[in-house]
Simulated assay, not measured.
Amino acid sequence: MTGIMPMLTLNNQTAIPALGFGVYRSPPARTTVAVETALANGYRLIDTAAAYQNEVEVGSALSQSGVDRAGLFIATKLWVDDYGYDSALRAFDASLGRLGLDYLDLYLLHQPLPSDFDATVAAYQALQTLYEQGRVRAIGVCNFDTGELAELLARTDVVPAVNQIQVHPYFSQPDIRTFNLEAGILTEAWSPIGGVNRYWPNSGELKDPLHDPVITALAAKYHKTPAQVILRWHVQLGICAIPKSVTPKRIAENIDIFDFSLTAPELSDINALDTGIRGGPNPQEITRS
Rank of each mutant, 00 (worst) to 15 (best):
L109C: 15
F117N: 02
D81A: 14
T146R: 14
P112C: 09
S87N: 12
Y124L: 03
A126C: 09
V136W: 04
Q128R: 03
D82V: 00
V136S: 06
D93T: 05
D145P: 10
L109R: 01
P114E: 12
D157C: 03
L113E: 02
E132Y: 14
G134Y: 10
T146H: 05
A88Q: 07
T120C: 13
W79E: 09
V162R: 03
Y131C: 12
V141T: 15
L153C: 11
E151N: 13
T156P: 12
G134K: 07
G140I: 05
P160H: 09
T156V: 11
T120D: 05
V121W: 01
D102K: 13
Y85W: 01
V162A: 06
L130Q: 10
A123T: 01
P114D: 12
A150N: 15
S95N: 08
L108E: 08
L113F: 02
Y103M: 11
A123S: 15
L127F: 11
A123N: 10
A88M: 01
G84F: 06
I139M: 07
A138C: 11
Q164P: 14
R90W: 04
L130R: 08
L130D: 08
A138P: 10
Q125V: 00
G97E: 15
L96S: 00
L108C: 04
D93R: 13
V162D: 10
E148W: 11
R135V: 06
L108R: 03
Y131E: 12
Q111S: 13
Y103D: 11
Y107R: 07
A161D: 04
Q111R: 13
L152F: 04
S95E: 09
R155K: 15
V121R: 02
F144L: 14
G140R: 07
P160G: 11
T120E: 06
L78P: 02
Y85L: 07
L108A: 04
D82Y: 12
L104T: 07
D145Q: 09
L127I: 10
Y83P: 00
V159E: 10
L89K: 13
L127K: 05
Y124K: 06
A161R: 03
S87P: 00
W79S: 09
D81P: 02
Q133Y: 00
L78C: 14
S115Q: 13
A119P: 01
G100S: 02
V80M: 07
Y103T: 12
L96D: 00
P114C: 00
V141E: 10
G100A: 03
P112G: 09
A94G: 07
L106K: 00
A161S: 15
Y131W: 15
A122S: 14
R137N: 11
L149A: 08
H110T: 07
K77Y: 05
L78D: 00
L89R: 12
L153V: 13
E132W: 13
V141H: 04
D105H: 11
L153A: 12
G97D: 14
H110S: 10
F92E: 02
P114Q: 07
A154I: 09
T156S: 14
L96R: 11
A161K: 04
R155D: 07
L153I: 14
G140M: 05
Y83D: 01
L106S: 12
L96T: 02
Y103Q: 15
G84D: 05
V158G: 08
L101H: 01
Q125K: 15
A88N: 04
L149F: 06
F92N: 02
